[in-house]
Amino acid sequence: MIAMTPVLERGYTWWDRSLFPRDEFEERTRMVQKAMAEAGLDALVIWSQSYHTTGQLAYLSGWPMGGAVLVRREGEPTMFSPGGGREQYFARMQTWVEDMRSVPGRLGAVIAKTLAEDGVPGGRLGIVGYDQMSVGAYAEVVESLSGYDRVDFAETYAAVLAPKRPREVLAVRNSLTIAAHAVEAGVAAWEAGASNAEALVEAERIARIERARDFRGLVNSKGTELRPFERVSEARHDQLLLWIAIDQHGYWAESANGVAGTAATKAVDAMVATARVGATAGAVAEAALAVLPEAARDSALSYGLGAGVGLSLDEAPVIEPGNDALLVEGSLLSLKTYAKGASASIATATVKVGAEGATRIVPN
């Protein structure tokens, strides 16, 4: 189909039923319904943007795009896809949800009508995704669902999603493998004489070949500053700093060409050593800053020290000084450091948090 879209909206997209069979989503739905019952909710609406989603909707639907999911206290959810039905056939092949409906507009009104038809004309309605709504969408939801006691359920929902299930850990490892291969390809191209920008292009080429759905990359195409691809450039610097993040099946991972013994690697190692159940995100950040040269701390904080990872590259908790959020058993963290200085360096690590410490997730 020829569409009036001048950019690549997504890469390879499919539902791997061997990785995520139907019963995986059924079990997730039961977990969420249990949390709903404990909170006294009559129904739950999970809202997401059209493309760059937070992963909240995908957790239950498997659909790594936008729309809304209506979860009842019992039974299977209903998914509402924004826009017309042009992509309905494609979307239906990506999700286990059988009740999928295209909604061109006024999604709040459609949800209210569906709830009324289900015999739930009022009551406590949980909402996840207020932060994803446009001003117009928020106003329409408030108007259409005014007959319900609306409860912001985001914090409780995030607590359900924080510990990663075994198949989720495997999905992140698979994404990490693609990201690592992309970094290796970029480094090999640079070592063979490619420019820094060309190394980033080669990294994306390999990531797409290996079925990355989405791709993000930074490279030092101008001195030591990390930048996304902006234009073809023949500039080849004395050093290559390459950071790659990819998503497959909605699950993200990041990798970089870290070198042992550098300031960035030492900082990441310090964070890994500090991360454990009960530690705060702020303490993990302070561990990195404590081993970094003073000149490198600003760049490390500017580019970020990491966060939770899974269906989003920046899940809670954000690793930053002063964050008192406690690390949760079974959660995954993606830690990173970009240390600027006389000799710039970059490093990453993906870890699973446990009571005895953090376990590194390594590529397949």
Rank of each mutant, 00 (worst) to 15 (best):
D298E: 15
D298I: 13
L240D: 06
R227F: 08
A245T: 12
S18N: 13
G40K: 09
F90D: 13
N196Y: 07
Y138G: 14
M271N: 05
H181M: 12
A316L: 12
G282Q: 02
S345Q: 03
R30V: 13
K340D: 14
V232Q: 12
S48F: 04
S302L: 15
I319S: 04
D118Y: 07
V142Q: 13
A358T: 06
I111R: 04
A182H: 00
E202A: 12
E225S: 14
G83R: 08
F215P: 01
A288I: 01
L41R: 01
L335V: 06
Q56H: 13
M1A: 13
L289I: 04
V7M: 12
V362F: 11
V69D: 07
T114F: 03
E210K: 11
S233V: 10
M36H: 05
Y251L: 07
S102F: 04
R167G: 01
G258Q: 03
A339D: 03
R208S: 10
G123Q: 09
T337C: 15
L327F: 06
Y157N: 02
V160H: 05
E98F: 08
T280W: 03
L145T: 00
E76G: 00
V232Y: 15
I206S: 04
I319V: 12
G40P: 07
V362R: 15
L313G: 14
L161Y: 04
F229K: 06
I46G: 00
K34S: 15
L240I: 11
A37R: 15
R205H: 11
I246K: 01
Q248N: 11
A358G: 07
S175H: 04
S195H: 11
A285N: 01
I2C: 10
V141G: 03
L200H: 02
L241S: 01
L44E: 01
E117T: 09
L327T: 00
D99C: 10
A256M: 08
Q248C: 10
A273W: 01
V7N: 08
N323W: 07
K266W: 07
W190S: 01
D149P: 08
K164I: 04
G186L: 03
V32C: 09
L218V: 03
G308P: 00
Q56T: 13
K266G: 01
L292V: 07
I319T: 01
